[in-house]
Design a protein around this nucleic acid. Sequence first.
DNA 1: AATCAATTCAACCGCCCCATC
DNA 2: AGATGGGGCGGTTGAATTGAT
Length: 328
Amino acid sequence: MGRSPGIDETGLKKGPWTPEEDQKLIKHIQEHGHASWRALPKLAGLNRCGKSCRLRWTNYLRPDIKRGKFSEDEEQTILHLHSILGNKWSAIATRLPGRTDNEIKNFWNTHLKKKLIQMGFDPMTHRPRTDIFSSLPHLIALANLKELIENSSLEEQVQRLQAEAVQTARLQYLQYLLQAPPSMANFSENMNTLSDMDNYNLLNSLSSMKDNPVCNSTTLQEFNDSIPFSHLPNLQIPPPCSFQTSVNKDMGQGSNFTELSHGKDSPSSPWFPSTLSPSPPPQAGPPVTVSSITKSGEACSTSSYGGTPPSFWPDFLLEDALFHDEIA
DNA sequence: AATCAATTCAACCGCCCCATC
DNA sequence: AGATGGGGCGGTTGAATTGAT
């Protein structure tokens, strides 16, 4: 693995590190530290650039590095944090002692991303995918094409694929509703605000379907009927795509107000869990109020978690003011 | 056993931020 | 205020490894 050995234009070595080079680097840092990475290679007798030394140390040689497979807990933590922070690997790494940003990034790209995709989630938004036709290759595989081709007419094949697409969309939508926290499950009071983005995505999907010859009006009607939003067909313009979310946590002695901002156009949603397995039972805790406001400052939703914070939020999210500052 | 394809992950690249002058 | 350099970060590369045929 890694790169082939080579010498760059300045005469410095590139590529994989030898055990001898590792020993020189370790010995030097143990004895003198690494005040200046630029000066270090010369002092340590290494024909490497300072940057290469720093990477080798921070990603591989550091004594506190934990190697080996990621645990289930670590996996869940990465998923939680990625749903909030996105590809901020160094920020995620600070919450996983012994793991480097590089290792987490690799683990995400080679395992977790694929896992989410396979389960029908968008790895960037952590939401169920609503773009039905982008999932068609998966549907086709599931449908056992061989049997279809051999035993069905073209018309039957098309009908079957349509049914699969509608069923998948329904399942994904149900999955989304079921995974929302209690106040969201009771969407009668929140549906006009928090669900707009999802409605918009669904509308886009429906719009794509209309343009596709394999979708007829019956299919679309069936799909529409499966969604319990009476106002869905009327939504034509994109909703505000920037949300600011604040958390008001009663600490017992008056309110301790902290703010969580997800930045403009952030795909993450604070209420949406990123776990792949059922969340643990919620623990009793102080009351938490989560409010979302639009770009213009209008309140678009308020959800209260009476004495029980959302179980998918790690405690430190609510307690660590520094962390709030980081993502603000 | 040989070959090919897919996956993994250490290492590199280029950009950005921040401190210093 | 602008220039410079060091360090940090996220994205990408590609050799080694593993799995499939």
